[in-house]
């Protein structure tokens, strides 16, 4: 089936997927060089989810994401340099170096984190939507979470509350088939994740999360329905993580063959090849995107390298509105 998509739109989607891939590859490299420390969760393999979804949402919509959020943050418009500086722990990072890789925030872009307690972001999303509903705003709160979050009580409570109070939340489940190292069929009794929201009366659908166009279209449709009805909806995005869960993960829980099989469905390669085959783009377009991305990431590293360390005397900042110590 031919892609029903404009050249500009196709290039925009491809560009952002490549930007994320290169950012993540550089992050892994810098982790090995000990420039980045702590936990680092890479988005490689899942780019179609973040890019397709973020391109479908409006600038004014709220975003709540997980600890694997570099992709969403970058596409949302947080500069790569501020993301990189945050991972370095520098004061010019997007959270001032207080958050790190898992806690990217941007108030001006309505990017509400960066949540690293699985399931913990869902009630926050429900509350943001409640605030909007009470203020008469027409915005959607898009809440990303993984398949592991569906095990948590807060997932079920949040679906129930959002449905009961008719709140404009778009629940986006990034099902990458593993809750850290526990396979889906080993952590849920019903592997059909979308059955859960349906039990609470929340309309739910699933989409191939390795296909950026399909994700983009589905999220767009769902978000507009949430906006129109001011009621929650749920979308499962079926994806796969190509890299380890974090940099500490020896990947004992899955075979190399399984990973290789999924890599054959690389969201970037697949999309590029389709666009080339359909004549929507040429190799020169890809080369230009790659060159831009390489420069952007190099500049980001430079920005992080040049950033200042926050003085230790300031350590008690940002605990309260006014320092109590």
């Amino acid at each position: 089936m031919k892609l029903d998509i404009s050249r500009d739109h196709a290039l925009a989607l491809l560009r952002d997927m490549i930007r994320i891939r290169r950012l993540e590859e550089k992050s892994a490299e810098l982790y090995a060089k000990q420039k980045i420390r702590g936990f680092l969760h890479l988005y490689i393999g899942e780019e179609a989810v973040g890019v397709g979804a973020m391109h479908a949402l409006r600038k004014d919509d709220n975003i709540v994401a997980t600890y694997r959020e570099h992709g969403q943050a970058l596409v949302r418009g947080i500069p790569a340099g501020e993301i990189m500086a945050e991972m370095y722990g520098k004061a010019n990072g997007c959270s001032g170096g207080r958050g790190g890789s898992m806690h990217l925030f941007s108030a001006e872009r309505r990017f509400y984190g960066g949540h690293a307690i699985v399931g913990g972001g869902l009630p926050i999303a429900v509350g943001l939507a409640l605030a909007d509903k009470m203020k008469g705003e027409s915005r959607v709160t898009a809440c990303f979470f993984g398949d592991g979050a569906t095990d948590e009580g807060e997932f079920h409570e949040s679906l129930n509350l959002a449905a009961l109070w008719k709140l404009p939340v778009l629940f986006l489940c990034e099902n990458n088939k593993y809750a850290m190292g526990t396979a889906l069929e080993r952590h849920v009794a019903d592997a059909e994740i979308a059955d859960n929201p349906r039990a609470y009366g929340v309309p739910a659908d699933s989409v191939n999360g390795m296909d950026v166009v399909a994700v983009n279209r589905s999220v767009h449709n769902e978000a507009e329905l949430v906006r129109e009805t001011s009621e929650p909806r749920f979308l499962e995005l079926r994806t796969y993580r190509f890299r380890a869960h974090s940099m500490y993960d020896a990947e004992l829980y899955r075979t190399k063959e399984e990973v290789e099989k999924h890599k054959k469905h690389d969201p970037i390669e697949g999309f590029q090849n389709r666009l080339l085959a359909e004549g929507l783009i040429e190799q020169a377009d890809i080369d230009a995107i790659e060159a831009d991305a390489a420069k952007e990431i190099a500049d980001a590293v430079e920005f992080a390298e040049q950033g200042e360390w926050e003085p230790i005397e300031d350590i008690t900042r940002h605990v309260y509105a006014r320092d109590l110590s």
């Binding site: 869902l122 009630p123 926050i124 509350g127 943001l128 409570e157 509350l161």
Partner: peptide, 25 residues
Amino acid sequence: DRVRDTPLCESTFVGAGIGAAIGGM
């Protein structure tokens, strides 16, 4: 609208309160 009986889900209604506070309420 302004006096809300919640379901019995302490984690989520407190979390929703936190979200609403961040959201300007």
